[in-house]
Simulated scan of single mutants.
Amino acid sequence: MLALTEKSVINSAGQFGRDTESRTPLIEIRGISKSFHSFTAINDLSLNIYEKEFFALLGPSGCGKSTLLRMLAGFETPTSGQILLNGENMVSIPPEKRPINMMFQSYALFPHLTLEQNIAFGLKRLNMAKDEIHSRVAEMLSLVQMEKFARRKPGQISGGQRQRIALARSLARRPKMLLLDEPMAALDKKLRRETQLELMDIQHQLGTTFVIVTHDQEEAMTVANRIGIMDHGHLVQVSTPLETYENPVSRHVAEFVGDTNVFCGHVNAVKESGWQFCLDKVDTVLVAPELTGVPSGNIKYLNVRPEKMAVSRDYEEDSSNYLKGTIIDVAYLGNLSTYYVDVGLDKPVLAQMTNSQRLHTEHFAEGDVVWVSWYPQDGQLLVR
């Protein structure tokens, strides 16, 4: 596995965590729409993607993310709108003439060719000199640490190794942008995690702009500098992984990215200590930070992540927010436990607690009556 250095992580996370408005985008997507007969897959979507960025398109199946990727690659033509690369409209330019390459989910390796021949295939079509092709293939094999397998064929290596060769072949032509369509979907969880780290390190080494399509929230949070959340052909939020998780713009985003608790209700009172949120189903008032610039009457939801919550047998006097309930299920995951607590709402409350000590961490069981509590600043009010 390639080593993901601390320096590369810091650079990757910090470079695009800042404001991007002052930077010149590599790709400008302007008002793109794509319809298939009466079905609209992409609806008036605009987005900027920057040089050396690792950008993730995240969303459920059918949200339009793969269609958008195929339009970037040139395999689909927009119904309307523009795709600009360094200011040049690419809509009428065929895929083979774009400085963009795409790595498919199936990897699409030629089974009758060796690994080095697979990597060289696209280079030969560029009419490169033989010695230059040989040098570039060796460089790519070294990049993905597959030199000793160069003479093997795809059927003689593992799925993870095929993924590396597909990546090497996609990068061999040195595209300005690499598009990745669910590239790790076929890998097991451990190998997927290792490959994600390798992918991040390769992207950082080369400085190539990567755009990945995935429905795996953890994968997007791991590899991307910024994430675009898609829903029914629209981009509903574009932000860093931290911002996406901690400050979702809507209930849809909050529930799609990780586990969470979304309480339905309304603001009952506005005070200096925080806005008081009254639950619809139970007679309980909770406290949350003010939602700046939004009238209190527009508030519909309170979002609280499960890891922000504490579970205890006794009521915590210093906590402003608490709910009493009964544990109806426990998911023990080794490093943490997830408690499902019935507090009288339509859905149980999810609370997660780390098992930080082997023998002394307090564990709760199904049927226990407990208090679930959290600090006001750990909740987020939402309008939609």
Rank of each mutant, 00 (worst) to 15 (best):
E6M: 09
G14Q: 15
Q15T: 15
D19I: 05
E21M: 10
T24C: 09
I29L: 14
S33D: 06
L58M: 08
P60R: 10
G62Q: 06
R70M: 14
L72R: 02
A73V: 05
E88T: 11
P95S: 03
F104P: 02
F110C: 05
L123C: 06
D131T: 15
A138K: 15
L143M: 15
F149M: 08
R151E: 11
A166Q: 01
A172C: 05
A186H: 15
K189F: 13
R193K: 11
V213K: 00
D216K: 00
Q217M: 04
V223P: 01
I227H: 01
G228R: 00
G233K: 00
H252W: 13
H252A: 13
V257P: 03
D259V: 13
T260D: 03
V262L: 11
V262A: 08
A269W: 04
E272M: 09
D280H: 09
D283N: 14
D283C: 05
N298I: 02
L302V: 06
E307G: 05
D314L: 14
E316P: 07
A331W: 12
P348C: 07
T354K: 13
N355M: 07
R358K: 10
H360F: 14
W371A: 10
S373N: 11
W374L: 06
Y375Q: 14
D378I: 06
